[in-house]
Design a protein around this nucleic acid. Structure first.
Lengths: 117, 117
DNA sequence: CGAACCTACAACCAGAAGGTTGAGCGTGCA
DNA sequence: TGCACGCTCAACCTTCTGGTTGTAGGTTCG
């Protein structure tokens, strides 16, 4: 469970959209895009267990849409605007239905950075 | 087949990103954004059963990212640029903060005792 | 030190996802 | 008419998801 590099581009896109396909995770992402927040602080906003929220944070982290740093006993999460923008641009490219947009999408995926290296 | 209104906005967003979180479905979407294509024609591009591809098309259709029309014995799928744009804009909104949205969600959660129905 | 706090992780569970095969129905055509 | 084609649906299987509870380790502070 620790050795998946999300090597293939399509896998990375899968992870982005899968992470976004849950309203709780989108809400967490909105929050940590504005300011760093700890897992337990995040958990107080939702009517589910701390563990459930922690799992959502892990999903977001592994997708690359957020990063985390340790501060004492807290784990502070922050949104990764770069990767979110890459996901957004991938959609924009789909939207414009460009003929050679597939090559363009490869570019976008290539410039996305891996989570937690 | 169109009585599933996906009433809440968040449910619609869930469906959008869930539909996008699969590389086969993204590929189908790319194709039908360019030109209408039948289910069996789409299926010829992939190494899976017709039924599997048909299910992917149904997922895309129910998410609103594609529409279908009947032509004789064929079911022709076409990408819905409007809803795809909405999904894209939702990401852009996330990207740029979305303060109002968070406030509104907090209100709703404060009122509702049972979120998530 | 001891207590409270934050995080992590394992085990478990119900339900959804993604695939298969097989049957069946409407449509087009030789 | 008969038959191939395109699609749909049901049933089934396996894996993944999203939630739970319980246990435990590291950190802060009285």
């Amino acid at each position: 469970m620790q050795d998946d590099t999300l090597s293939r581009d399509e896998d990375r896109a899968d992870a982005w959209f899968r992470a976004l396909a849950d309203s709780t995770r989108r809400d967490i992402l909105r929050r940590v895009l504005r300011h760093e927040e700890s897992v337990s602080s995040l958990a107080r906003h939702y009517s589910m267990s701390l563990t459930a929220v922690q799992k959502h944070v892990v999903v977001l982290e592994r997708s690359g849409l957020i990063t985390r740093r340790r501060s004492g006993r807290e784990s502070l999460a922050r949104g990764d605007a770069g990767n979110l923008r890459s996901a957004s641009e991938l959609l924009t490219e789909l939207e414009s239905g460009g003929r050679d947009h597939i090559a363009r999408i490869d570019e976008l995926l290539d410039e996305a950075h891996d989570p937690k290296e």
